[in-house]
Design a protein around this nucleic acid. Structure first.
Lengths: 197, 197
DNA sequence: CAGATGCATTGATGTAGGATAAGAAATGAA
DNA sequence: TTCATTTCTTATCCTACATCAATGCATCTG
């Protein structure tokens, strides 16, 4: 469980094995079952979650009780509510497990400790923030203009592996359409003999 | 022109007047007329634009020739394509002037020089990134679920002053609806005796 | 001043996608 | 295996919003 995290992490920093081991000494791990909720809307987010195996998602629930999926996090991804943890404010988001998943809990102490000793970590973190912005901006752009079909096509080209793992109703929720509409879009694509793989 | 920038800037850093003056020595200023384009889609973004007077906007143009407005920047705002300038990639965005506006051109040399000498600047920049993410995430959420009316109401509560300055068709473009629909939404609100101010 | 030009409104009509309901298929538990 | 639950599909109807087109106003401009 720690292994994949270590690999991931060392690729982003220039820490020696010794440094890594001393810092990671009090990291927490957990295997959670499908459906477990890791962050509740309204709570302040105190951790980032590194997925070493499995699949997490973040989502909101609006006034009408509808879910809107913000992000998926499969293996080797980190998911969190950066706004909440950075500003110490209650989160808008839920984070839960779509599959049984193995998680490394990364808290601020860990982050600060690493930032302290590794310049390249700080740079990587900055890069990650910029990537996040880029990805969100692209999504805003899609939501402003694209049809259901265009959004779905975009999704399966960006996340081909996820397309098979995630239930369709969740993909629909991510795209901002109903499961029924997604089903129709897929049918239409099949009719036009579209081959995703 | 430099004054408002200096005020803005010193509020975010702890630079002395001397430091500021030496660093800002080769900053560029420009007054541009309404409609001037500061960044073209496809070009790499080399500056951030500080608005000391007037109003800028960033937007994309999709395959069908439709504009989608990403952001507005009135007085004392900075606008830019951070992704493009950070990753040195061609920008998706146009940036142009909605009104005649006075701009301070902030280039990387300036940023680097300040980051070099001011910790609080680096912190502020990091905070700005997090704010940007928060704002984008909120917008994604609105676009995923809210009706035209809800989006408009959200807009006028967040940007009451802009509501009066920006032509309605631009607000519509920001909200992802047509000008006609916005006009009907406004009519409907008026009928229900809604008072924005 | 007359005629452009740009923006907002209004009306008529079209359509993508939502709501609802029901059945089929897949998954999973006993 | 069987029964139950969840997911996916299909069909019908409906609504929010788009599209198209006409008109009304301001503001420019020669």
């Amino acid at each position: 469980m720690l292994d994949s995290f270590k690999t991931y992490f060392q690729s982003k920093t220039n820490l020696t094995d010794e440094q890594f081991h001393s810092i990671s000494a009090n990291l927490q791990f957990k295997k959670v079952e499908k459906g477990s909720i890791l962050l509740h809307q309204g709570d302040v987010c105190h951790h980032s979650f590194f997925v070493s195996k499995g699949l997490l998602r973040s989502y909101t629930i609006d006034e009408n009780g509808k879910e809107h999926i913000i992000q998926f996090a499969p293996e080797n991804w980190i998911i969190s509510d950066r706004s909440s943890s950075y500003f110490n404010e209650p989160s808008e988001l839920f984070i839960d497990a779509i599959e049984e998943t193995e998680i490394v809990f990364i808290d601020k102490n860990f982050i600060n400790a690493v930032a302290e000793i590794s310049i390249s970590f700080r740079e990587q973190d900055n890069t990650a923030l910029h990537n996040h912005i880029r990805q969100l901006q692209k999504r805003v752009n899609l939501l402003l203009g694209a049809t259901a079909e265009q959004r779905y096509l975009d999704f399966i080209t960006i996340y081909p592996s996820l397309t098979l793992r995630i239930p369709q109703w969740m993909i629909a929720s991510y795209l901002g359409i109903t499961p029924e509409t997604l089903s129709r879009v897929r049918k239409e694509l099949a009719k036009r003999n579209f081959k995703p793989y």
